[in-house]
């Protein structure tokens, strides 16, 4: 077996006296959809924030194996470098689009670092040099290709905040994809979507996985989505891992059923 894309070892996060995540270990493979599930308050989002660098974990290691660039210790990297260098992208539970900017602008910002280099830190840009203009045109084309894919190319010039909720979710995912990630982390992507939209999302995520061979790590409440699309599921409860395996395995795990339904043995 190849080296896993993401290896989390003994991840622990404490807030004061509260242990939100306790010695959490798991692996995620490239080209797989890995889901972290668990009841409310299980520490899923905290674990997620540790992986994407928004929290610094109290203990443990998070290693990303980039196929071309080598290994990165994410637990000690600054959050913007995790995206820029290690190529881990993420979305947020409560959508964080740049609401006052247009759909296209949102995607252009995701390509900021390449464009910044192309504009020679604005010097070439100010004088309108052709190399920059070409780079900008390419960035627009790339953005438009993604918008075509999620079917909102006609809304490219609308403010992002004006999109309906389901499209905002998709736009946020596409914006993350514009950074060319090797690992895409989605925090409850199906939250607030209706069943039809959830199904569409599942199809879309599998396409992304297959077409680009990225690893997808997602937190989800919606079991139907998780069971349908995941290749691998990790279950958290009170900050600890209680189960880990294929959807079929997890579905029949007594510990999981107990955690979700609270059944006494």
């Amino acid at each position: 077996m190849t080296k896993p894309l993401l290896t989390v070892r003994d991840l622990t996060m404490r807030f004061g006296g509260l242990v939100a995540v306790d010695k959490f270990s798991f692996e995620a493979q490239s080209g797989h959809i890995t889901a972290i599930i668990g009841p409310n308050g299980a520490g899923k989002t905290t674990a997620f924030n540790c992986i994407t660098g928004f929290y610094k974990p109290s203990e443990g290691s998070v290693t990303l194996h980039h196929p071309a660039r080598g290994d990165f210790a994410l637990e000690s990297m600054e959050d913007h470098k995790i995206s820029r260098v290690a190529k881990v992208a993420r979305t947020f539970q409560n959508i964080r689009l740049f609401g006052g900017m247009t759909v296209l602008e949102n995607l252009m910002i995701a390509q900021h670092n390449e464009l910044m280099r192309a504009s020679m830190f604005s010097i070439a840009g100010i004088f309108g040099m052709p190399s920059y203009r070409r780079a900008e045109r390419e960035a627009i084309e790339k953005s438009m290709a993604w918008l075509e894919r999620i079917g909102i190319a006609d809304k490219a010039d609308e403010p992002a905040a004006a999109l309906p909720y389901g499209q905002q979710r998709k736009l946020e995912i596409v914006r993350a994809l514009c950074t060319d990630p090797v690992l895409l982390c989605l925090d409850e992507p199906a939250a607030g979507l209706n069943p039809k939209e959830s199904d569409d999302l599942g199809v879309f995520l599998r396409q992304i996985r297959d077409d680009f061979h990225v690893g997808i790590l997602l937190i989800e409440h919606d079991m139907s989505v998780v069971m349908e699309i995941s290749d691998h599921i990790v279950v958290l409860d009170y900050g600890r891992k209680i189960s880990d395996g294929t959807p079929a395995h997890v579905r029949n795990d007594a510990a999981v059923i107990k955690a979700y339904l609270g059944v006494d043995e």
Partner: peptide
Amino acid sequence: EDEIACRSLGL
């Protein structure tokens, strides 16, 4: 607009 989103995009 959103500093946290900026950081998540590598800015």
